[in-house]
Design a protein around this nucleic acid. Sequence first.
DNA 1: ACAAGGAGTTACAAAAAGGTGACTGCCGAC
DNA 2: GTCGGCAGTCACCTTTTTGTAACTCCTTGT
Lengths: 107, 107
Amino acid sequence: MTADPKMYDCPALIAIKAISGKWKTRVLWLLRDGPHHFGELRAALPGVSAKVLSEQLGQLKDDAIISSREEMRDGVLYVLYAYSDYGRGLIPVLDQLGAWGQAHQNR
Amino acid sequence: MTADPKMYDCPALIAIKAISGKWKTRVLWLLRDGPHHFGELRAALPGVSAKVLSEQLGQLKDDAIISSREEMRDGVLYVLYAYSDYGRGLIPVLDQLGAWGQAHQNR
DNA sequence: ACAAGGAGTTACAAAAAGGTGACTGCCGAC
DNA sequence: GTCGGCAGTCACCTTTTTGTAACTCCTTGT
C-alpha cells in the first residue's frame, strides 16, 4: 500500500479506502453521538451481518479511527466502540462528504 | 437508491459511492489540470483497462461530475473529458479527503 | 449442570468489481 | 480499398466484498 506508486498520485484514494465499505460510514455516523456496543450497532443497521460488521469494525480499528473497550454490565460482557481522538479528525471530512452527498442526491 | 431508507441515515455514503472505484479519484485528480482524452487518461493510469476506464468515465458522466466532447484532430477523433461546472464543486471535498489521506498515510 | 445474553468466528455461497484479449466502427491518408 | 490511430464494446474469467447459518466462548444466575 505504501509501496504502491499509483497510490502516491491520489491521496484521496487512501482516505476513501479507509472509510469505504458498505457499513463503515454508517457506523461512523452512529458513533457521532457517543459509544455504542456491538449489539446496538447491529440493531441500528438492519441488514448487516455479525460477520461483516465485525470485519468492518476491525478495519476501522486497524486504521485507528475507532477504539473499543470491554465493559461488564449485569454479568454480561459488552464491547463498546467509540471514535479515537485520531479518528475524530475524520468527522469534518465526513461532514463535507455528507453535505455534498445530500446536495448530489437531490440535484 | 433514493428509495433506500438506510441511505438516508448516511449522506456521506452517497458521496462515497459517486467517487469510489479503483480509478475514479485518480481520473478526477488528472482532470484538475484541464481536459484529457481517453488515450491520455489510459496512458497516465498504468494498469487500467479500456473496459474499466470506460465504465468509470461513464459513471462519472451519469453523475454529471464530468462531461465529454468529441474533437477532430488530424483526421482522428479524440474524446475529451473534463469536469462539469457541477463536478467542480467536488474538488474541495477531494482536497479535504486528500489532505486527510496523506496525513493518515504517514501517521 | 445448564440456561441466557452478548460478542464474535467459521465454512460456504452469492454478488459486485475489476481484468484480458479479441473484436468493431470511424475517419482521413496513401 | 486498405492501413493506422483513436475510442470504445463483447464474452469470458478472477478477485474482492458481502451475505447466511451454524457454531464457539465467556460470565453470571438458577
